[in-house]
């Protein structure tokens, strides 16, 4: 029904994974450095915390979170209606914001700002319109200490843990 050839991000994690291939604007070059850096950080932290976990049983899981601060619509060559596009992009960009409550409320977490005002380009994902959404976002790393969240392991996978029944 639809043939999408463009490189688009659909989830924050994918963005981090694909960050290096992003179409770059002046501002974006700047953030690619951050992205690379974060990738390195992410990986090293992962190993660090993995070893740490064995020693102390307090693993850390790292989640990349975006808090979107502005949005816009880029019709490109499609000639799409700007107002309608902006309204749809408001939702697209909004949905890209991470609901950090899922991490903060579980207890044992730190949130670290990694980059501000990054420009993200997302497909508009609407069958009646083409063009892209431009989301401006601050990027954070949420480092979750699993101490109070004992049913997930360091990879975020569920583990069987009968902590309530005391078995």
């Amino acid at each position: 029904m639809k043939n999408v050839q463009r490189r688009v991000m659909t989830s924050p994690q994918e963005l981090v994974d694909m960050g290096i291939n992003m179409r770059a604007t002046k501002q974006e070059i700047n953030c690619q450095v951050y992205l690379l850096l974060s990738l390195v950080l992410f990986v090293s932290l992962f190993f660090l915390s993995a070893t740490f976990a064995q020693a102390t049983e307090s693993p850390e899981r790292v989640v990349t979170a975006f808090l979107v601060t502005a949005y816009d619509y880029d019709p490109g060559a499609s000639g799409g209606d700007i107002e309608m596009g902006r309204s749809i992009c408001a939702t697209q960009c909004n949905a890209f914001s991470t609901d950090y409550l899922n991490y903060s409320e579980a207890g044992g977490w730190r949130i670290i700002k990694m980059a501000s005002q990054e420009q993200l380009r997302l497909e508009i994902k609407n069958p009646f319109m083409d063009g892209d959404c431009l989301c401006t976002a601050d990027r954070y790393e949420i480092r979750i200490n699993e101490l109070s969240y004992p049913d997930r392991n360091i990879l975020g996978e569920k583990i069987d843990h009968e902590f309530e029944s005391g078995q």
């Binding site: 899922n102 991490y103 309530e164 029944s165």
Partner: peptide, 19 residues
């Protein structure tokens, strides 16, 4: 669902130890 996981702990508390 992925934004709802934070409630799992509260839900488990009312299950009298069952899964």
């Amino acid at each position: 669902p992925h934004e709802n996981i934070r409630f799992d702990i509260s839900l488990k508390r009312i299950l009298s130890g069952r899964k």
